[in-house]
Write a protein that binds this DNA or RNA. Sequence first.
DNA 1: TCTACAATTTAGCCATGACTAAAAACTACT
DNA 2: AGTAGTTTTTAGTCATGGCTAAATTGTAGA
Lengths: 231, 231
Amino acid sequence: MTKNYSSEIASPLSSNHEDYLKAIYILEARGEQVTNSVLSEYIGFTPASATNMVKKLSQMDLVIYRPHQAVSLTPTGRRVALEILRHHRLLELFLHKTLDIPWDSVHEEAERLEHVISEALEDAIAASLGYPKVDPHGDPIPTKTGEIGHTPGHPLSQAKAGRAYRLVRVLSQEKERLAYLGRLGLSLNVELFLREQAPFDGPVLVEVAGVEHALAAEMAALLQVVPASAK
Amino acid sequence: MTKNYSSEIASPLSSNHEDYLKAIYILEARGEQVTNSVLSEYIGFTPASATNMVKKLSQMDLVIYRPHQAVSLTPTGRRVALEILRHHRLLELFLHKTLDIPWDSVHEEAERLEHVISEALEDAIAASLGYPKVDPHGDPIPTKTGEIGHTPGHPLSQAKAGRAYRLVRVLSQEKERLAYLGRLGLSLNVELFLREQAPFDGPVLVEVAGVEHALAAEMAALLQVVPASAK
DNA sequence: TCTACAATTTAGCCATGACTAAAAACTACT
DNA sequence: AGTAGTTTTTAGTCATGGCTAAATTGTAGA
Ligand SMILES: [Mn+2]
Ligand SMILES: [Mn+2]
Ligand SMILES: [Mn+2]
Ligand SMILES: [Mn+2]
């Protein structure tokens, strides 16, 4: 129950507080300007609610808020966000590996569990998985001390036709999208061969386990790959 | 996320709603009259808060409330209580068996997790454990359809000296008490030999793994045992 | 520079569910 | 039956954190 960050924080944070911080972290990491509208749309509350919450978080020194400006995390806010993100990603991997929960379902489940696991449970999960570095979607798992790695790879949409690649990350948590990819035989570390890349953001032809599939350009942009030979 | 009982219930239940229902179930099962004071003390809120919540639960048809009378569960309320209890006990066993969380820590952790796991996760946990019947403290796990077994055994305080027994249930979730028992080598299904039972509710002398220990009468009353030969 | 439009903030409302303090209702003893 | 003491309920307060609607601010194009 007691959180890592609890020593640094005055009042205890609700699940929603934590989700706001996580959202800000993720949006920042994407390189987006975290404006109120971007944030409120991402978390699924009204803009008024987002303003309200951001002000509270700023009073707690978790967020830097200046009216009409993009918000950003303070060092403490970032620590909290990374702790929750660590919970989330460890849980996703744990559910997937230990209980065979499909990769398209783990996100939803982890979204709730991430707020209620103790540090002891977090540690036990990490240990049982051998201190993993990435979750089932290839997203990097922050360390206990709040460091987070950079994942290699580039979008399949920028890859060269006629070569073999390995899927190292999927930049989406959408259930339907992941389920679809799964049906094609695509999951983390699966090899694929890029047959053809139609110009003008056209579809992409890939071969997975000997079967050819056409993918929309936006789909290909979400698939991070490395050359198949690369470790 | 979607709960089993959600089809039967109008508004979604908060963690506290669920804990109230579970508390009422447990107190009823103990054979106690679930008065407002008993309930409020058990859940750790003031009597006024308990009255307030019980009235709400009664409007939702989960509880039968008559002013100044003991509360009881409606069939639906019982279904909900048993579902949460199933979550709780499955989680305890899962944490203990799969992640080696000690039996004195699983209760706390499950107390929070029980409210946020989906039906799919509940099922996956049950399957991975081989559809177990009891949790790490010997408490019976309700089935998915809301049946709950009766555990065999009787208190060690009513056992006969000079005989061997097997521990089948501990009627306590207190961390310190369970940790102490653990230090004596006592856990579920461990054998012990009852050396002596002092009269007038005096202490009990037991031998566990060749070592003799004295237990307070109240402690012995919490240990449910069967003859060592019994399955 | 003015203006229209979009983004943001403010103001005010509401449900929830805890709390304390006071009132009311039960129980048991004389 | 009357009364003291306990239990329960009521009344009223507060914090939280969503919401809508209105006001304000910022921005980009004419
Ligand atoms: Mn979440
Ligand atoms: Mn992920
Ligand atoms: Mn609980
Ligand atoms: Mn238990």
